[in-house]
Computed example of a mutant assay.
Amino acid sequence: MPQDLPPVGGYGPVQYKRNLPAPGFRPATLLLAMGAVMTFGFYKLGQGIREQNELAREKMWSRIHLIPLLQAEEDRDLVRRHLADQAREKELLGENTQVYNSGKYVRPTFAVTPSNVTK
């Protein structure tokens, strides 16, 4: 029985690679897609930061515009308290006394204390 031998001219170059398409996307495609997603994300982040800065600016200006109203309300409250204190003092002592030696108005300081103290 004759032995099975390779062909006389040989097989040619040895083919060690399979002719199959590479799975998935090419690296350049993945890199471009990732870059596009990150660019969009940074764009949206920048828009969000701008929006937060604008809201903070609006909040600050609204507080600045409310200061005169709050100051007037506090002044009315101080006048009401001052007149009530003078009336109470006149009722108890019979006359109003000067605490300070100058005729200047001294703004009173009130300390707000909690009604029930817990330890």
Rank of each mutant, 00 (worst) to 15 (best):
M1E: 15
L5V: 15
L5P: 06
P6C: 03
P7A: 09
P7D: 08
V8P: 02
V8K: 06
G9P: 00
G10P: 01
Y11E: 01
G12N: 00
P13H: 09
P13Q: 10
V14A: 05
V14Q: 03
Q15V: 14
Q15C: 04
Q15G: 05
Y16V: 13
K17Q: 13
N19E: 11
N19V: 10
L20Y: 09
P21S: 04
A22W: 05
A22G: 09
P23K: 00
P23S: 04
P23R: 08
P23I: 02
P23G: 01
P23D: 03
G24A: 01
G24Y: 01
F25G: 05
F25V: 06
R26Y: 04
R26K: 05
P27W: 06
T29L: 01
L30E: 11
L32N: 10
L32E: 10
M34Q: 15
G35C: 02
A36C: 07
A36G: 07
A36M: 11
A36H: 07
F40L: 14
F40A: 14
F42M: 14
F42C: 12
Y43I: 10
K44G: 02
R50Y: 04
E51I: 00
E54I: 08
E54F: 11
A56W: 07
E58R: 15
E58S: 12
M60H: 13
W61E: 12
S62R: 08
R63H: 09
H65W: 08
L69P: 00
L69E: 09
E73C: 07
E73M: 07
E74Y: 03
D75C: 04
D75W: 04
D75T: 10
R76K: 08
R76T: 02
L78R: 06
L78H: 00
V79I: 14
R80I: 04
H82D: 06
L83M: 12
A84D: 12
A84R: 12
A84L: 14
Q86A: 15
A87W: 09
R88D: 10
E89V: 13
K90D: 02
E91M: 02
L92V: 14
G94Y: 06
G94C: 08
E95I: 08
N96G: 07
N96K: 12
V99L: 15
V99T: 13
Y100L: 11
Y100D: 13
N101P: 15
G103Y: 03
G103P: 01
K104R: 14
K104H: 10
R107V: 06
P108A: 05
T109Q: 10
T109W: 06
F110V: 13
A111Y: 02
T113S: 12
T113N: 11
P114Y: 03
S115R: 12
S115G: 07
N116I: 14
N116M: 08
K119D: 08
K119H: 10
